[in-house]
């Protein structure tokens, strides 16, 4: 089977000469379709940069990235972009405050020239568990959890293969986090989505992900899986520190 995401020797450097900073240093991993891969680490470890390179937010990187076996580089085609969608950390910041939910969901459809827009919006709202009347609301009329559902709907509406989740529940309360994590799991099972989840919370990572990479200073210090993480069979002291937290 072809991996949904295949990253080989990814290196990202910011700045030049003396000031050059290697944010990601020779990172390789692959994620099988329908599974979830977790990147865990503290601020500045490079986890979001890895995601940025895969998402196409960063264009200046070295190495190889392939989505569904198709290598991506430089300028991406529309179908390539539709295949990888992203959900951001802060649902307060990631939705346009003066666009209704319908307007927000319409935008990806317009960009990608998809028809049958009304039905698609109706369907995606249902998938994320929001009532149809929310179409006509503005983000400030929604709670944090509802907003994050809208952000997930916006990613989902292009029927992506891969979802990039950048700390999708860090800005939410515990009880709302549970709802969003449950939704993400249901969506993954129903649609065979592949997830790349970035988080600093080991418990969230262990709950969602099958494979887990622990990052520090731009490198993977440990590559492990759910069972080993839960059993506490970790090799690296840093992994243990993050796992035990406080």
């Amino acid at each position: 089977m072809t991996p949904a995401i295949c990253v080989e020797h990814l290196t990202v450097t910011f700045g030049e000469g003396m000031l050059a900073f290697r944010a990601v240093d020779d990172v390789s991993f692959s994620v099988m379709p329908g599974t979830a891969f977790g990147l865990v680490g503290e601020s500045g470890c490079g986890k979001s940069t890895v995601m940025g390179a895969i998402a196409g937010r960063l264009t200046d990187w070295q190495g190889k990235i392939a989505i569904d076996g198709e290598p991506i580089s430089g300028r991406r085609t529309l179908p390539q972009r539709a295949r990888v969608q992203m959900v951001f950390q802060d649902p307060y910041g990631s939705l346009h405050p003066r666009h209704t939910i319908e307007r927000t969901l319409l935008e990806p459809l317009e960009i990608h020239g998809l028809d049958d827009r009304d039905r698609r919006i109706g369907k995606v709202l249902e998938q994320v568990g929001l009532p149809q009347r929310f179409r006509y609301r503005f983000p400030h009329q929604l709670s944090g959890g509802q907003r994050q559902r809208v952000a997930i709907a916006r990613a989902l509406i292009l029927s992506p293969k891969v979802m990039l989740l950048d700390e999708p529940t860090s800005a939410l309360d515990v009880s709302v986090q549970a709802e969003v994590l449950n939704l993400l799991k249901t969506l993954q099972e129903d649609q065979g989505l592949t997830y790349l989840l970035v988080s600093h919370d080991m418990a969230v990572i262990a709950h969602v992900c099958d494979q887990i990479a622990v990052m520090r200073e731009g490198r993977f210090v440990e590559l492990t899986d759910k069972q080993r993480l839960i059993a506490g069979a970790v090799e690296n002291d840093y992994t243990r520190l993050l796992r035990e937290g406080v």
Binding site: V174, S175, Q177, A178, E179, L181, N182, K185, D201, M202, A203, V204, A206, H207, K226, L229, I230, R243
Partner: peptide, 20 residues
């Protein structure tokens, strides 16, 4: 109780989290 159950836990993995 609801808050405690909604929390993902490494030492007690569950398929779905309890919703408050």
């Amino acid at each position: 109780i609801g808050l405690l159950e909604a929390l993902p836990r490494i030492d007690a993995p569950r398929d779905r989290l309890a919703v408050l």
